[in-house]
Write a protein that binds this DNA or RNA. Sequence first.
DNA 1: CATACGTCCTGCCAGC
DNA 2: TGCTGGCAGGACGTAT
Length: 326
Amino acid sequence: MPELPEAETIARRLDEVLSGRIVADVTVLREDVVAGPARRFARAIAAKQIQSVARRGKNVVLLLCDQSRVVINLGMTGRLFACAGGSDSFRDTPSAPGAPDGFEAPQGAKASISGHAAVLFGLDSGEQLVYDDTRRFGRLAIMPPADWSRWSRSLGPEPLSPSFTAKRLHRALAKSRSPVRSLLLDQKKIAGVGNIYAIEALWEAEVHPRLPGRALIPQDVTKLHRSLRRVLRNAIQARGTTLRDYRTAEGAMGGFGPALRAYGRAGQPCRRCARKIRRVVFSGRSAFFCPGCQGSGADLRGVHPMAVRAGNELESRNRTPGAALL
DNA sequence: CATACGTCCTGCCAGC
DNA sequence: TGCTGGCAGGACGTAT
C-alpha cells in the first residue's frame, strides 16, 4: 500500500534518474489505468522533457517541460521503476489478460517487468520507465497547469510541511463524529496518510482508532500531530514499508516493517505495555490498537456502547493481513 | 452537508 | 491435490 513514505522514496529516486530525460514514446498496455483516452495521454507526454519528479500526497508527480504534470497514483499494487533493457524484449512477451505472466527476470536484475506492466515510457537514454500494477487500482493522469493546481488544492496539507500544524490537525478532526482513523485517511483533510501510518501514529499517540474526531482532547491532538510526523519521517528514512507488493524504484523492499508497532501485530504483545494488540474492522478496514494504552474501546468518549460492541465482534484472532511477510 | 457503504481488481491462503 | 470463496484496500461513486 504505497502511502506518503513509499511515494516519497520512489519520487526521490526517479528524480535522480529521470530529470532531464526526454520521453521518446509512451505505450499504454492497460488502458484502464490511464485517465481519459490512452492516445490523448500518450500524445500529451511524448517528446517532452522531464524536468523533475516530486510527490503530492501518495502520488508521484512528473513535471514536464511544458509545466504539465503526469500524476501517478500507485493504488494498492502500483510500481514504478526504470528498466535498463530496451522495450523490444518486453514486447516479445505476451501480456494479454489471462495469459501467463511475463518472463522471469534474470538473476540480479534490479527490477523485473511482469505481465502486469501497464504503461511504458521509452526514454531518450534507451532506458524505459515502467508502470506496473497487478490490481490496476492505480491511475495515471496528465494534468495541464490549471488542472494540476485545482487538483492539488483539492487535497489536504502535506503532513510534513511546516504549514501542517497541530492547530490544522485539530481543525481537520474537531467537528467530526467519524472515527479518527477514518479522518486521517481522508486525503482532503491530510494528504498522504494511509491505513498503515494512521494506525502507527495512533498507537504512538496512545489514541484509540475509533475515537470520534471531535472527542480528542487537545493533548491527544498535540501528541497525534507529533507522532504522525515522526512515523512518516522514520518510514521515509527506512524507504517505506513492504507488506507484500511495494518496491522502491530500484526494486528493493522497504525497511520499515520491523518498526511497525501495531499494524499487522494482532495477538502480539504491545511494545509499551505488553498487552495483546487487537484487530477490529470498521469502515471496511482493519484497525490495530493496544487495549491497554489506547483504551479498550469500552471507555471511548462519545461512542455509543452498541457501536463499540459491534466493532469488537468483528475481531479476528489469527488472521492478520500481511503478517507473514513482516 | 456529513457519513456510510459498495465497487473496482488480482493474488493469496484457509478450508474442504 | 485442486478448487473455491473470502479477504486485502485507495479512491471514487452512490445512497442514506
